[in-house]
Design a protein around this nucleic acid. Structure first.
Length: 223
DNA sequence: GACCAGGCACATC
DNA sequence: GATGTGCATGGT
């Protein structure tokens, strides 16, 4: 059997196993596309429980909108998002996002979604504070584009399994999934959410294992 | 009290 | 281009 065919079987099989083990994850937990975009920035190197507090603050003050975030003072914004950590840099990032959104799309996220995906990805990446993972989270979870999100969990788990190399770039990692799966936003959405679920479950129970529920395809402790 | 969490920009070599 | 560092809160 050819190696690339084995790889395809593995990538698909891991998804099936995770899906059976954990069921639907219902990502991204947000009421609007804009909320996803804000959450994607706030969750950078932060625990989601802290991000929830920051978003709750914005909602309670009824300022979770591009216009409100543009018009409030920097220090006011920083105070709202304080629980998510790095509040000064993140306030600057959110300001950059909403000014960009206004200037390029008149705050119309539906119009933004009409742009061709790769061009839009380049465009989003030009915004201060948005790197590959945040850009892809926005494309997938806010706009429903079939773009696979690579995070630290994905790298760690698939490195242990042997499907990702230590030196692989973000794009290399992404190719593992996009070249072996149907380009389906719902599938990419669920797969990434399941990877995060697996990482949290397994890590919390055993620091030496990221993939107990993967059975034989998990080679934890042997890498 | 140490360590980590759904990264990124920037300085320096 | 790769390697190091600052950013900061809240939960375990």
């Amino acid at each position: 059997m050819k190696d690339d065919y084995k790889e395809k079987l593995l990538v698909n099989d891991i998804y099936r196993k995770l899906s059976v083990a954990y069921g639907p994850q219902h990502w991204w937990p947000a009421e609007s596309a804009f909320e996803v975009m804000v959450g994607a920035i706030l969750t950078q190197s932060a625990a989601w429980t802290n991000v929830e507090k920051a978003i709750r603050n914005l909602k309670a003050a009824q300022v979770l909108s591009p216009d409100s975030i543009r018009n409030m003072s920097f220090s006011e914004l920083a105070a709202f998002i304080k629980p998510s950590g790095y509040y000064n840099v993140k306030a600057r990032k959110l300001k950059s996002l909403v000014y960009w959104l206004g200037e390029n799309y008149s705050d119309d996220i539906n119009r933004m979604a009409e742009t061709e995906t790769q061009k839009l990805r380049e465009d989003i990446l030009s915004v201060y504070g948005i790197g590959p993972e945040t850009a892809d989270s926005i494309l997938l979870y806010a706009l429903g584009k079939p773009v696979f999100v690579i995070d630290a969990y994905t790298r760690r788990i698939f490195f242990r399994i042997g499907l990702i190399g230590e030196e692989d770039s973000y794009n290399d990692c992404q190719r593992l999934f996009t070249s072996n799966l149907k380009a389906d936003a719902a599938l990419f959405n669920e797969y990434h959410a399941l990877i995060v679920k697996l990482a949290k479950e397994a890590c919390n129970k055993n620091p030496d294992c990221d993939g107990c529920c993967l059975g034989e395809i998990c080679r934890h402790g042997k890498s």
